[in-house]
Design a protein around this nucleic acid. Sequence first.
DNA 1: AAGTGGTCTAGACCACAGT
DNA 2: CTGTGGTCTAGACCACTTA
Lengths: 246, 246
Amino acid sequence: MNAHFTFSPELPAARRTRMNTWQAIRADVLSRIQSGEWAPGALIPTEHELARAMGCARATVNRALRDLADSGIIQRRRKVGTRVTARPSRRTRLDMPAVRDEIEALGASYGYRLTESVMEPPMESAARALQVADDRPTLLVRAVYLADDRPHCCEMIWLNPRALPDLDRLAFETQSPHEWLAQNVPVTQAQFAILSESASGATALQLGLAPGTPLLVIERINLRDGVPVSFSRQFYPPRYRLNIND
Amino acid sequence: MNAHFTFSPELPAARRTRMNTWQAIRADVLSRIQSGEWAPGALIPTEHELARAMGCARATVNRALRDLADSGIIQRRRKVGTRVTARPSRRTRLDMPAVRDEIEALGASYGYRLTESVMEPPMESAARALQVADDRPTLLVRAVYLADDRPHCCEMIWLNPRALPDLDRLAFETQSPHEWLAQNVPVTQAQFAILSESASGATALQLGLAPGTPLLVIERINLRDGVPVSFSRQFYPPRYRLNIND
DNA sequence: AAGTGGTCTAGACCACAGT
DNA sequence: CTGTGGTCTAGACCACTTA
């Protein structure tokens, strides 16, 4: 096999970039898919066949195909094979940054102002998110995040005292609940929802907007080992854009 | 150090699940990070050291650490080593589904209605997105997507005729521009932005909402080999939630 | 029962970035 | 130069799923 390459150094054009890197294999496979040679819904060759055809180890093919599967371009099933996704959705990475990072990335100085901190029964959606009865008191914290002393977004966050025994409602005078959580609670999982909502009176006031202004709302549930520890709603003014690059 | 492990076969509980799988290695490393044994910002042992300590091949350790790096838990740099991310943002996967899939996932029947299809100079934001002069005509298509014959969302999409030579403005009577693109143009990359906006008169009418209702707007730029081919704005009513699970 | 992808190994070489 | 992560190889065994 070595001898083969020694005597016939011709290689398929698509992978002449450098060598048998998994990126080259991925590019080759991807180009065959995009050219229509391997049509949507069809099976592509097995790893063994590809490895033979490309003259590389199967592990390398596997690495390339796994990457394509992660991107949603292909779908793999044991015993069945690898299929080109029929109508691929665009799968991408999304970083949900901490608000502090978001503000500092703008080149602005980060500021935090606590507005309210009360122990009271949660509103219905919060009770549902935290999976607690809606007559059990939870800690509701309201705060405004400032970029160069101007409102960037504001937040309501409910904290579940049963899941957070060492919760101290005085901790949030100067530190945001999210940062406190990051330092004190090993959050293992998070769930998000993004939606649109009209600014209510209090929220509008905090953001310096007219009531009824459309807001972008990012909801977040933090879980520790499957148990919800917090539910937050962050409100962003219309000028805000959540950017996602493929 | 080998001797230590040889004479005391006790292993940390976290990786007694089964064997030396990369998932077990990842779980072990993750638990050490979450327990604070390896603090944020600190260097963790090298791959060689971990492989020796865990009694597995370096490739297995590499697989585990690469996965953690993909999740943003750790950061790796050649020659310097692997560091625990100081203030990790939540990094997750996001599927931007085709509207058809979105509707059918609700168990509803998909419908599409073309509202307008005109060749005209693009509005300023569309010209910027498509990187064309704003006095050059582009094809603007407006449409409504229906779930069980009720408006699900509506859309404006600008198509760049210079990048799409075989563009046929009659193609969109029965087929949505996105599906036409998916079948006819190898889109290699996409950029998204999510924001909030008030419903204008025409949009409100199409969605059956009062003008001024807050809408969720998803903007999308499709690129082929770095060249923008389309720019779309999809408008969703307040009942819509974009859900993201970690 | 058989065929496919999923993974592990032990070793090797390379690319990159500090020193 | 040196040490770190990044990758490739050839082979092996396993897990899952369909027939």
